[in-house]
Design a protein around this nucleic acid. Structure first.
Lengths: 176, 176
DNA sequence: TGTACATCAGTGAACGCGCGTTCACTGATGTAC
DNA sequence: TGTACATCAGTGAACGCGCGTTCACTGATGTAC
């Protein structure tokens, strides 16, 4: 049947949103098109009415996730205080334990690094928006962003919860 | 045929070594058992004479790669000068462009984060060895390690070579 | 305004390919006597 | 020392499963007249 036209855009965004969450949680390769569509409340066949390929969905998901991150940075404000508060939140246990709703870069940067130029371009555009939203010195922004990402990536990759906490806490203390 | 017994251990290590290189370059999911065995000069069927599963190979590869990294850190020395030289090398274009022969953490930390406790344990043990080999203040070591990893991960994930260089250079300047 | 028809998002079965894993087989090596 | 035999790393074909993608079909919606 033909479905209400104005619902289509909403469904499209729901697919992208669920893809972003699932990819962030498990990586591109460990999430199937069917899973994404199911999470969006549809069947897998309809996927190709929205995207040409899984690869294209990955691009949309990265762009979406990066835009969310940029919005979050912006909401903290481009001040010293704002950046401090953002860093503390970023380095918190909640963020470490909820990759699906966390920073796209901390979840998928290595997957992006191995992928296509298009995907890297979407990632890069998001990074630039984040750096701009953050304000302050650009070099310092890059440095701090790298430290935050590295900290969360490490904290998620170790087995011992105490060491994981120690990593987050150490970077929280040292990051300006 | 029965093959020379003393060659077996060498072949086993060759499999692990090639697995470590290929996994670092393309991630666990994008490398097949056949590819690893071919790189080691064998056919895929023989794989199961060495390992119970691909998962077990991943564990061996992470342990191997982390041990290599620890050795590299150790070779630079646990001094301020040594750490400085190590950081400069780590943040160089060569390392960014040669993930196969680079730091396991910068290549596979996110894959490990999504994987089994066994894999995380192997990763963690390597990290502890690296921190110990690095010497100096532990918190500072953790912070610097996070910044280095984050920088290389970001530099590999962006599309524009100039931005990639800028990321490495910024972190090189800011890292103590 | 009412009617006929084209559209196209969505469904669910099916296809084809690649991957991890298994298995029957090989034959040089090491061991028992 | 020589001979018979068990071993087991390695080979390559095969299996089975899951995934991305395709496709024939549906039927409410929007449009032409």
């Amino acid at each position: 049947m033909r479905y209400p036209a104005r619902d289509t855009a909403a469904k499209h965004e729901r697919i992208v949103k669920e893809a972003s969450r699932l990819f962030s949680e498990r990586g591109f390769e460990n999430v199937t098109v069917s899973e994404v569509m199911k999470a969006a409340g549809l069947t897998h066949g309809a996927f190709y009415a929205h995207f040409d390929s899984k690869q294209e969905l990955q691009e949309a998901a990265i762009a979406y996730g990066q835009a969310l991150s940029a919005g979050r940075v912006r909401s903290y404000g481009a001040t010293k205080k704002g950046r401090r508060a953002y860093a503390d939140r970023y380095l918190g246990a909640w963020h470490r334990d909820n990759a699906a709703d966390g920073c796209t870069m901390a979840a998928l940067a290595q997957d992006v690094a191995r992928s296509t130029p298009e995907l890297k371009a979407a990632f890069e555009q998001g990074l630039e928006e984040i750096l701009s939203a953050r304000g302050g010195d650009r070099k310092q922004g890059i440095f701090q962003t790298a430290a935050l990402i590295g900290a969360v990536v490490l904290a998620r990759a170790v087995q011992d919860p105490q060491l994981s906490d120690e990593i987050l806490e150490s970077v929280r203390q040292k990051v300006s």
